[in-house]
Design a protein around this nucleic acid. Structure first.
Lengths: 202, 202, 202, 202
DNA sequence: CATGAATGAGCGTTCATTCAT
DNA sequence: TATGAATGAACGCTCATTCAT
């Protein structure tokens, strides 16, 4: 990665690169800022930390909501990619649980993000909802695979599983949950997801 | 004997009835408003819906934060009372699960309230934190009883159990969770909390 | 002259005593409160420190301005009484300077009071202006006496002398003027007021 | 060399002209408004009279206090410059008195300004206090020069002289002092500051 | 295309004053 | 008559968004 990072570009030509760079830097900063302070964080702070003028932010994202949505889309897409990568893992039995753990750990301390997982679920009909759906479908695929592999009980369906995923990740995002507590919380959930009774283990 | 039922009323003090009514109406409305819109809801809306002037709200609660805190305290206390009532239930085995279900159902649609459960856990050293602690302790008592009765696995400790309670209630508060999905989500968690068949988990 | 001066007096029997007490306590407290914080001090604080309800303050003084005016009247009258007392002093030469010093010292730390001396001079046509005039006249009498006694230059007239009185008392009221500095400031003014050696000044 | 006279303008920066104009108009208006109504005048009135939105005022001065401070600094600096200019006057004997008169005349009708002279003396550790100190020092220099020139008595020290300056300028600012009265008031003070004839009484 | 100045609606809060008891 | 609750206008300040350069 070449880091041109110089914000005010003496040169005339390659402005496009700058714009792209700016857009990305804004997105990155926004994810951090909104992650930390929820959506109550100000757009101006995003601009400041991204080293761009406020108007530049609004040029790239016409609305604060649009910026938030872009952050979410990015996040959802990233998570979906991770989920899809795990679809091809050798041990398809544990892939589901790995992803569950990964998502929850990733959410730690990122307030608004966890929130958004939820809101985007039912809120917008926009891009974020679409991206959220993508993630949800990927999780569904992981779930099915795990069920086929006998690692997850057959009667667990996506809605409640997804709800649990969201719930635990939000708990991890907001609270002061220590890592150990978080793990024990997940252990309980995972036990609840384990195949019932007779056919134990894989 | 005056007929006023005002409890802290050593001497005479008329009209207190009106003030009490207002205070309670404000609290009720605030619970609803903040429940719906999070803490970003405006104090003025509370005033409007409570049919009082804005200054009246501030007379009763000197600060928006104080109003929010009062809402939380009220809520925590109410829940704690319910928890404590269940402590004396005949079937101490199911009391714990009943309360879990109750709390989660109660949270449905009340955004900020679920949030608050969490925030108050680590936030203030104020009344809300105290009330939150009270609830937590009551849940702890229910948990212990359930464990003694063999209805909950012994190795589950309060921190993770409480985290699950909070997580699922928030999921219920925010999302569009249908009742059926919510129940199935809880079923999974409850299975995870059930005593282990053999000697699982270390 | 019997001075029942209590304005609204339809009451039945002895209530008067209470009302009088309240009125006076309010006035006393108001002098202190406004003296300290200027007129920006709140009426409610006056009520609190006077141990009466806010409505009681407004019963006695229908307006904040009226309360302030009453404070001023009281103060002006008191000062006038002191000035008039000094009119009968044995050494009529120093009486003027004694009063000057007294007034300035009395103003120390009493922000709004000094201010009021001035404002009332040109402001209202109300009671305060009347009382202010009374004080001013008394000072005029002291000045004349001192001039007759040869203690003050003859060409000094009341307007500028009074202006100096007000100016120095305000300086004393507001600033951090140490006592010593205040005395040296007055010494200069007093020297300026002393009879001219030869035929100075025009 | 760009033609902009903006001092801190390393690179390019257009439109700054507008902002500067606004800033200055706000300051000017603020001096007038606060001069007239004291610090109780509202920031919104400043905005209105300056023909800018309220937010523009707050963009330039992040706080009402900051705006007030800027007004004071401007005023102090202006006065200090005048004082320093007089330091190089031919007749160093009368320079001191000229400045005294100038300052008092300048304060006429500007309520809060005179007040500020005083408050800034002991108040903030901020810019206003620094500027106030600068003025005070300049006055000190004028005083010393006048004393060396034999135009002011030697035993007069800065604290009391400055106190007199402040006192008389405030009197001039607040009261309805006619010009003639003001001059006679100053004449008395100036006589008090004149070198002592022989050995004056006690 | 990037900038930062400008904007106004809105928020939390205060306070003199009025009302009901 | 004394009380304290109620009120709304006003204030200082913030922020998403628009405008001019």
């Amino acid at each position: 990665m070449t880091t041109t990072d110089s914000p005010q570009n003496g040169g005339r030509r390659p402005q496009r690169a700058d714009a792209r760079t700016n857009r990305e830097r804004i997105l990155t900063v926004a994810e951090e800022v909104f992650g930390k302070g929820g959506e109550s964080a100000s757009t101006e702070e995003v601009a400041r930390l991204a080293n761009v003028g406020i108007a530049t932010v609004f040029r790239h994202f016409p609305t604060k909501a649009a910026l938030l949505e872009a952050v979410l889309v990015q996040r959802f897409d990233r998570l979906r990619a991770q989920a899809e990568a795990l679809l091809h893992a050798t041990d398809s039995g544990t892939a589901f649980f790995d992803f569950f753990r990964l998502l929850v750990a990733d959410a730690t301390g990122k307030i608004a993000i966890g929130e958004a997982l939820q809101q985007a679920g039912g809120n917008d009909s926009g891009d974020a909802a679409r991206a959220s759906d993508g993630l949800r479908r990927a999780v569904g695929a992981l779930l099915q695979q795990a069920q086929r592999a006998g690692a997850v009980r057959d009667d667990a369906e996506l809605p409640e599983v997804y709800a649990l995923l969201v719930a635990t990740s939000r708990a991890s995002a907001h609270g002061r949950l220590e890592e150990e507590v978080r793990d024990r919380m997940l252990a309980i959930v995972f036990d609840g997801l384990a195949p019932r009774r007779a056919s134990r283990r894989r």
